[in-house]
Design a protein around this nucleic acid. Structure first.
Lengths: 345, 345
DNA sequence: CACATCTTGTATAACGTTGGAAACAAGGGC
DNA sequence: GCCCTTGTTTCCAACGTTATACAAGATGTG
């Protein structure tokens, strides 16, 4: 049987509220009284019932974090960072994964998967603007990741176009001219349509290199398997790229596996750049050059954004305008793009 | 402003409890009444306040899961499986990570990190029996993973000794005789002391192969980096193993990276076997032979164990005795051990 | 037709906590 | 000795839900 404030109060011979005051470090409690109550607390092993506290206070101290897939190390590493950042603000994290499915993302952002959260950090893949616009739930929501929505929610994301351009520029600087893009996703109009793809396109165009659609490989997901399949299909179609920019590291590594199988050397035959800088990339047989987003900053900004809104709500402030926050990134050069280059990046 | 049962009740002109009955599908409600209340619910967009429900019912519907490190794909993948398994029982998962630090593991199992959980699944690394014995918290606890405690808690774990022996047997069958163990952990008496190590030792002994301490490399953690460092140290010491059994896949892959750097071929010069079967192992330049625990089974059993105890508590049943549950495993053979073998495994 | 039985809805009291108001001391100035 | 101030503790009412006990109406039975 759990011990409550009432039990402690009886034991110490004081009122329930006094015990509560001690527990909450309310300043106007005499040291003598504090000691007396504290010893009763210790003797009985009292632990506050958070649920009751939550009910009373109207908040739970729980932030939800929904990512597509924990099996993708990027999200796993990010989740770890979010948990730590949340702990700094005395919040705990309820983690969910959506498998990158629109249905699940809708459920999550509507709060149907877990309705205990004070705030929600969502990294959407398939969610559409209309889904988000139809959102009924009133818990603060912060968006992570590459997709853009024109809606009043804070959005934390690195400059994907700039990052992609830096990656492609790096490949161009190596003298590569047939640079494939692996991991395009198609929108309703069947055009590849995400920022990393746009960056690839833009940088090629800016450098006067022809943008060749045959070098664009679409995938259904963004894991090793998808990268491997895409690369195999590309090579089977007779294309022979000398550079590959992949949507993320997993796609890049999956693609590299296929290159090894077919006797293609990295970077001699094909130079490869990924995106995310997952740990795995630093230990591959050929280590992977990649765009490294500042995960800690992303996590910190996301948590601060949610927590900031919660504080605002609490103080009955007028809601802040939605912000676009852009943490930094770096291009980490590793073996997959080693080689003589005309000039340094 | 959130809408409560009371608001709905006023709108529908019925009592609060009747609305509650409708919400909870209480059987004795006339269809007419149900419809009337339901439409009031829909009009106002009522959503039950879970915190209040939790307070009243004495449970939260949240299970805690604490793993050492989300950056290790094994735990990330396992966490994903646990989330799914918990969802089947209408539980949500609060995820925490302990960095494999004893202090943090103690905090978690004492319930200090998050006191909202009905039950807890913990995968300990450094936690000692005495820490666990000193546990005050009364929420059901289930243990995962290799460490063994002689305490009345359900424990879900594959047969690590048998699995390790199968791995080593596989290497022996390839004709390897100098088989290193990478990733030993040392206990207080400074002896490597975990089941995978014991399995390695046992299988060597059973096959009449000398157990050579110089082939045992201890590490501080179990990531890529630790594997790389351990392998480098082993090679630097002048040892030249022809087989490596690693504590887990990350250690194996980190070690393989070092082998590549030093021009050692896998499997020709050194055959390698890992443990965990993380996705990464299937796409490495040399794919990794590994012990594949049934993660879904582990997750399912863990959740069922916790949920079962919760149900038991609710029905005031006498607590079940602690159980040791052993899901299955398979040895997945890949390129890192390919080669002619005297007989099939 | 009175009485028991079953069905459906209602009033009220919890669950454990905290915020605010009220009550009570103690001390100081007049 | 009285009033006022200041500081400390207590009392009461919430927070939103569900369980229990009960009332009221409907149905069946002798």
């Amino acid at each position: 049987m759990r011990v409550s404030l009432k039990d402690v109060a009886e034991r110490a011979g004081v009122s329930v509220k006094t015990v509560s005051n001690v527990v909450n470090d309310y300043p106007h409690v005499t040291p003598a009284m504090r000691a007396r109550v504290q010893s009763a607390i210790d003797e009985l092993g009292y632990r506050p019932n958070l649920t009751a506290r939550h009910l009373r206070k109207g908040r739970t101290g729980i932030i939800g974090l929904a990512v597509p897939e924990l099996g993708n190390s990027y999200f796993a590493e990010l989740a770890g960072a979010v948990i730590d950042a949340a702990a700094q603000h005395e919040y705990t994290v309820l983690l969910d994964h959506t498998q990158g499915q629109r249905e699940q993302e809708i459920l999550v952002c509507q709060g149907f998967r877990a309705r205990v959260m004070d705030g929600l950090i969502l990294s959407p893949l398939e969610l559409e603007t209309e889904d988000l616009a139809a959102r009924r739930d009133d818990v603060p929501l912060v968006l992570l990741g590459e997709r853009r929505y024109d809606l009043p929610y804070d959005h934390i994301v690195i400059d994907n176009i700039a990052a992609a351009r830096a990656a492609v520029r790096h490949l161009l600087a190596l003298g590569r001219r047939r640079i494939a893009f692996l991991g395009a996703r198609r929108d309703h109009s069947h055009q590849p349509a995400h920022l990393r793809f746009i960056g690839w396109q833009a940088e090629l165009a800016a450098s006067g290199v022809a943008v060749d659609d045959r070098l664009v490989a679409t995938t259904s997901g963004w894991g090793h398997e998808d990268g491997a399949r895409a690369m195999a299909a590309l090579l089977d179609s007779g294309e022979r790229p000398d550079g590959v920019f992949a949507y993320n590291d997993l796609v890049a590594l999956g693609a590299m596996r296929v290159m090894f199988e077919r006797g293609l050397r990295v970077p001699e035959d094909i130079a490869v750049v990924g995106f995310d800088d997952v740990t795995e990339s630093r230990y591959a047989a050929v280590t992977l050059t990649t765009v490294s987003p500042d995960k800690e900053a992303i996590a910190r900004l996301a948590v601060e954004s949610v927590v900031g809104r919660l504080k605002g709500d609490q103080n009955h402030e007028a809601p802040r305008a939605a912000r676009l926050l852009q943490p930094g990134f770096t291009l980490v050069e590793r073996e997959s793009t080693l080689g003589r280059r005309p000039h340094s990046f």
